[in-house]
């Protein structure tokens, strides 16, 4: 009976993730008015934008037309696929290198002392300093660009993973050992779940920096991909095309940022819920 009394005082909690609540009526109204304001702005731009010198600006219906052209000619798809390929490879290597390196630096004090400061320096250094070396070593190739994306993205991941390993609660590790866990099991059952939220944060930062790194690489290391298409369009004063590429890049960025947020929330679920407690 006692457990029933104790249970009764407790409301069942189905959802672990705290959700932001939107009030129904006024919220929907705000959303509509925001849409209306944007529609008005775009319409005004379309009307008055035609009077501006097309070498310096463009306007929505021209941009839509340019988007059609770029889509039909296949230039947009080629550029997008090229960019995503470089970004994907760069992020893949980031994950493959960042997790073990971050883990090792966090776990072994000697490695932390030796390489920790280097990671911090490289984390805050402007990545563009690597461009001349990369071009010299790997030429104006995809390899150079992939490495540049990798160099942009890997340090926040290493930094966060190492931080996560350092902040593993030692008493959790002891409890695991008291229940017969060997070293590998302790890493698997305690260290890994403990650092998941940190991996989420690091991966999110890596994605964001990887994307900016991608565009920078496409500007500075040979003209290619979406960044290259943007540069070509501006060089030819095709501002309508430039806007198309900008919008695509913004969309890619938005989708990746959302993916990063989701990943962070998912991996950090228990930590978030623990904080709420």
């Amino acid at each position: 009976m006692t457990e029933a009394t104790e249970a009764n005082g407790l409301a069942p909690l189905p959802a672990v993730r705290p959700r932001r609540k939107r009030s129904g009526g006024p919220g929907a109204l705000t959303g509509l008015s925001v849409l209306a304001i944007y529609a008005l702005l775009i319409a005004a731009w379309d009307v008055f934008g035609r009077d501006v010198n097309p070498y310096f600006s463009s306007y929505p219906s021209a941009i839509v037309r340019a988007a059609g052209e770029l889509a039909r000619s296949g230039e947009l798809a080629t550029a997008l696929l090229g960019s995503l390929g470089v970004l994907g490879q760069g992020l893949l290597y980031t994950l493959a290198a960042g997790l073990p390196v971050g883990f090792a630096i966090g776990r072994y004090q000697f490695l932390d002392r030796t390489f920790g400061p280097l990671v911090t320096i490289l984390f805050v250094a402007p990545r563009e300093v690597f461009v001349p070396l990369l071009v010299l070593w790997f030429g104006l190739s995809d390899a150079s660009r992939v490495i540049f994306v990798f160099l942009s993205a890997v340090f926040p991941l290493i930094y966060n993973v190492a931080d996560g390993v350092r902040s593993v609660n030692q008493s959790h590790a002891e409890i695991a050992q008291a229940y017969g866990a060997n070293e590998w099991q302790t890493i698997q059952e305690v260290t890994f779940p403990s650092i998941l939220p940190f991996i989420g944060v690091g991966a999110k930062q890596a994605i964001a920096r990887g994307l900016t790194g991608l565009v920078a690489a496409e500007f500075f290391i040979g003209v290619s991909g979406l960044g290259g298409l943007l540069q070509k369009a501006s060089a030819l004063y095709r501002l309508d095309r430039a806007f198309v590429v900008i919008l695509v890049l913004v969309a890619v960025g938005f989708i990746l940022a959302r993916a990063g947020d989701l990943m962070e929330a998912r991996l950090g679920r228990w930590r978030i819920s623990e904080r709420a407690y």
Partner: peptide
């Protein structure tokens, strides 16, 4: 087996997963 003063549960494991921990090890 030791029962800890501050419960010593793993916050990322459910009640069931916590109870099964020793068996899993």
């Amino acid at each position: 087996c030791l029962v800890f003063q501050s419960y010593g549960l793993f916050p990322w494991r459910t009640v069931r997963e916590n109870v099964e921990f020793g068996l899993k090890m």
